[in-house]
Structures are given as C-alpha cells and as structure tokens.
Design a binder for these strands. Structure first.
Lengths: 186, 186
DNA sequence: AAACTAACTGGACACCTGTCCAGGTTTCCG
DNA sequence: CGGAAACCTGGACAGGTGTCCAGTTAGTTT
C-alpha cells in the first residue's frame, strides 16, 4: 500500500515525537539561562537523550532556535484558544495571564528571549506575525479602534515583561485594571 | 599634597576612562549579538584594546554585564533628562522615542537583552528600579492615576519592543497616538 | 630618588562548543 | 525477502572561552 508523503510512519512518528521533546527541553533551557545557554549538548541533556539526537534533528543551533520560536508561538496560541471560553471579558483575560505568569514565568522569559533573537534575525520575524495577529484579534473583541488595539498589544507585552522583574508576578486584578484602562472601559 | 580617596589620579582617571570605553563597547556587542556575544575578547576587540584590559577591569564576564546594565540605565536616564525640555508634552515624548528607536535600535535591543538578563539574575533587579521610577515620573507629569501610570509604563516598554521587530521603526505620530490614548487624553 | 601601587599585558590552562562523519539500527515498501 | 530510507549514535576535530597569573610600566607619594 502506498503512503502519501508525510503520512503516518513509525520511524517518522517517533522521530517527530523526539523532535518535540527536544523543543520543549530547549524552551526550558532558554527560560533558565537565555538563548545563550542553548547548545546541542545542553538541550539533549535536558531532554534526556544523547547529544547526537539534537544534532541530527537540528544540524545547526540556529535551526534549533528557529524551531523553538515557531513551536513556542504555536503553543501559546493553542493554549490561549483552549483556555479561554468562547465569550470572555477582561477579567478572564487578567486571570489567564496572571496564572500563566505565575506558573510559567520561565517559559515567558524564554519567549521574550526568542522575541529578541528574532529581532536580530530578520528572517525569523514573520514567525511573530501570528503572535501579533493573536493580540490584535483579542483586542478586536473589545474595540474596533486601531489605536486602542495597538495600545492593548503594547501594554500586554510590557506588562508581561515587567512581571518578570518583580519579586511577585502581577495579579489578575492588576492586569485587568490596566487592560480595562487601555481599552477605555472605565 | 594629600589626595582625598577617589580624587583625581592620572592612573585611576585613565583607568576609569578605559572602563567606560569597555562598557560602551559591550553595549554595542550586545546590540549586535545579544548577551550571548559578550566575551572578554569580543568586547576588548570592539573597544580596540588588548583582551587583558577587559579581564583586569571586569574579572568575570558577569561583572561586565552587571556594569553594562548599570551604565545603560544611567545613560538612558541622563540622555532623557537633557534631551527633553523642562516642560514637555506627549508630542515631544513621541518625537524623542521615535528618534531614539530609529537611530539607536541596536542599543535599545541591548537594553532589553540586559533587562531579561536581570530578570534571571535577581541580584541585578534593583538596578532597574531607577528605570521604572523614571517611567513613573514621566507619566506622573500627565496624570495622578496609578493605573494610568502603570498602563503608560507597560505601553512604552511594549512599544519599544515591538518597534524592534518591524521593518521600519515606529514613527513619532504612532507613538504619540498610543501615549495619548493610554493617558486618556483623547 | 626610591618605594609604592594601580594599571596594564601576553601567555597558559582546562574546558566547552559547533559541526561533521562513518557506521549501526529499525521500520517500511515493493 | 531485500533494499531503501529515516533514524540514531559515539567519537573526533579545530576553534573559541573563562579565568588565572607572573611580570612590566608608569603615575604618585614620601
């Protein structure tokens, strides 16, 4: 029987699973030590696989970082889509972001690190279009004003970043207050 | 004649001048390749001095990064203080930030990189208190509302960050629009 | 002028890194 | 069943890195 290109394959399937394992490990490594800490060896050790597995799936370290960025944006988008109810208000948003910052601070730091990495590698910037599109779509649920959307998007990025520098992460109430303010809802 | 401790000294003076030279070089290196690119050798080469000069003034690379962070915040604060008139409005603010992002994008990227570095090294966080104080002070000129101040601070950070990812940096008008919006001035 | 000391320097060391590679294993297709 | 293909692996190599150090220079003080 003929298999379509990219169809199910025991080898390929296990390979791609290991690939995902490596990318998850990479994000943890970045969260701990920044993009600088990403090496084939460190990521492989974090994933609990031999070093060569990393060099096989990602011949160069840059490939690993690019894939981690893509994967990271994807993961955030899907997580957001499944965690928020169909109809949500700014309180839901505040709760979700606060929980994310509290539980996954390292992951959030990793995302910003990859963000800056993309800023210095223009070839990667298109990958972030989806991220900004997501922010704009969320803001679009509350307002049609393009300036308000831009302000919302900037404020969310800024809030997340500032949260990383505080001893205690931001609370849901703090986030909601700022979001409501930015959306002119008070 | 007796010299006070820390008084003018030919050796010390030249030494501190060279120290500043190294820190400026470090920021350029970070702007180009991120914190990861900071090595004694790379910074010394960028500054045009022998490698040992860097290791003498900053025994460990971590010392170099900490000093670069402190220096960077200081430089930004003084630059802002001298570039803005005594009384300024949001248009002045937009113009200043737009010019900064346009001319010193790499430096701005370096600041965010150090920002994240500090997030992962809690001992450095106090150095950023001055930065946030500065933002709060600026916002305080336009409003007394603490939520508006927080929103302003987050939006400025977010705007700067997003500007780094665009093909063309943000314009003064775009920045002013968002700032006015966040300050509820329209 | 002599002692003192901060600043400077090149070199050395062990360690870690990216990348490549030749060979091995498992799975799948014809 | 046989070959192809994707995966996996340990090792090797050259090159870059942090850090230390003994020795030198040149202001400053006494």
């Amino acid at each position: 029987m003929r298999t379509e290109p990219g169809a199910a394959d025991g080898r390929v399937q296990r390979g791609q699973e290991r690939r995902r394992l490596l990318l998850a490990a990479a994000v943890r490594v970045i969260g701990r030590g920044g993009v600088a800490a990403v090496t084939h060896r460190a990521v492989a050790a974090e994933a609990g696989v031999p070093k060569s597995v990393a060099t096989y799936h990602f011949p160069a370290v840059a490939d690993l970082l690019a894939a981690a960025l893509r994967d990271s944006v994807d993961a955030y988008a899907t997580a957001l889509a499944t965690a928020l109810p169909e109809e949500y208000d700014t309180a839901d948003l505040g709760r979700y972001l606060a929980a994310y910052l509290d539980e996954h601070g390292a992951r959030c730091a990793a995302e910003f690190d990859l963000y800056l990495y993309a800023a210095r590698n223009p070839g990667l910037r298109p990958l972030l279009g989806r991220w900004h599109g997501l922010l704009a779509e969320i803001a679009g649920r509350f307002t049609g004003d393009p300036v308000a959307i831009a302000a919302f998007s900037a404020a969310l990025d800024g809030l997340s970043l500032q949260s990383l520098l505080r001893a205690e992460p931001l609370t849901a109430a703090e986030i909601q207050q700022v979001v409501d303010h930015v959306l002119h809802r008070r």
